[in-house]
Amino acid sequence: METARAKENNKMESIYIYKDEFGNECTFLKEKYNELVCAIITDFFEEPLPDNDFRSDFLNLLNTLEDYDDVYIITGEMPFYWAICIIENRWTSNHLIKNMTSDLFMEWYKKYKQENGIISFIIGGIDEDTYVFNNDEGDKSIFLRGKYYEFISDLVKNFFKKPHVYNDLEYMLIGRLNALPASGNNKNIEQFIGKELFWALSVIENKETTTVLNEKQLQEYTEFRNEFFKTHHITSFITNSTE
Rank of each mutant, 00 (worst) to 15 (best):
residue 20 D to I: 01
residue 241 S to C: 09
residue 212 V to Q: 12
residue 73 I to C: 09
residue 240 N to E: 13
residue 124 G to M: 00
residue 146 G to V: 08
residue 147 K to P: 04
residue 167 N to D: 04
residue 195 K to A: 08
residue 143 F to C: 03
residue 78 M to P: 04
residue 70 D to S: 11
residue 86 I to T: 10
residue 127 D to R: 04
residue 240 N to Q: 08
residue 187 K to I: 13
residue 145 R to L: 02
residue 83 A to C: 14
residue 57 D to G: 08
residue 74 I to H: 00
residue 74 I to E: 00
residue 220 E to W: 05
residue 162 K to E: 14
residue 118 I to M: 06
residue 82 W to Q: 03
residue 181 P to M: 09
residue 58 F to L: 09
residue 45 F to I: 06
residue 48 P to L: 08
residue 47 E to R: 12
residue 110 K to N: 10
residue 104 L to T: 11
residue 97 I to P: 05
residue 78 M to C: 13
residue 17 I to R: 14
residue 231 T to K: 15
residue 211 T to N: 09
residue 189 I to Y: 04
residue 204 I to R: 08
residue 56 S to Q: 11
residue 139 D to H: 05
residue 159 F to S: 05
residue 42 T to G: 06
residue 27 T to C: 06
residue 86 I to G: 10
residue 198 F to D: 06
residue 220 E to Y: 07
residue 61 L to D: 12
residue 65 L to S: 05
residue 191 Q to A: 11
residue 14 S to H: 07
residue 77 E to P: 01
residue 23 G to E: 05
residue 53 D to T: 14
residue 168 D to L: 11
residue 222 T to E: 15
residue 89 N to S: 04
residue 27 T to K: 11
residue 31 E to N: 10
residue 169 L to F: 05
residue 54 F to L: 09
residue 117 G to V: 00
residue 130 T to I: 15
residue 35 E to G: 03
residue 239 T to V: 11
residue 117 G to N: 14
residue 118 I to P: 00
residue 128 E to A: 09
residue 153 S to A: 08
residue 162 K to N: 13
residue 228 F to Y: 15
residue 81 Y to S: 12
residue 220 E to G: 15
residue 87 I to A: 03
residue 154 D to W: 11
residue 203 V to T: 07
residue 91 W to M: 13
residue 241 S to D: 15
residue 129 D to T: 06
residue 191 Q to R: 13
residue 2 E to D: 14
residue 156 V to A: 02
residue 102 S to H: 10
residue 168 D to F: 13
residue 92 T to K: 02
residue 239 T to M: 12
residue 107 E to Y: 10
residue 26 C to V: 01
residue 10 N to G: 05
residue 67 D to K: 03
residue 240 N to M: 04
residue 210 T to G: 07
residue 71 V to M: 00
residue 143 F to R: 01
residue 237 F to R: 08
residue 234 I to K: 07
residue 24 N to L: 02
residue 93 S to W: 03
residue 165 V to Y: 00
residue 4 A to R: 08
residue 200 A to R: 02
residue 44 F to Q: 01
residue 123 I to F: 05
residue 163 P to H: 07
residue 69 D to E: 13
residue 221 Y to V: 05
residue 40 I to Q: 00
residue 140 K to F: 13
residue 22 F to K: 11
residue 75 T to S: 04
residue 115 E to G: 01
residue 209 T to F: 01
residue 66 E to K: 14
residue 199 W to H: 02
residue 115 E to W: 01
residue 155 L to F: 11
residue 211 T to L: 15
residue 114 Q to C: 08
residue 200 A to T: 03
residue 96 L to I: 15
residue 19 K to I: 03
residue 226 N to Q: 15
residue 100 M to E: 12
residue 108 W to G: 05
residue 115 E to T: 03
residue 144 L to M: 12
residue 157 K to R: 13
residue 186 N to A: 08
residue 8 E to Q: 09
residue 222 T to F: 08
residue 194 G to L: 04
residue 76 G to V: 03
residue 92 T to E: 03
residue 139 D to N: 10
residue 59 L to H: 02
residue 84 I to S: 11
residue 228 F to W: 04
residue 208 E to K: 09
residue 95 H to N: 14
residue 103 D to W: 09
residue 11 K to G: 00
residue 25 E to D: 12
residue 140 K to E: 14
residue 190 E to T: 05
residue 201 L to S: 05
residue 116 N to D: 00
residue 126 I to P: 03
residue 93 S to P: 09
residue 134 N to S: 12
residue 223 E to T: 11
residue 222 T to A: 13
residue 33 Y to S: 08
residue 128 E to D: 06
residue 190 E to C: 02
residue 132 V to H: 11
residue 9 N to H: 12
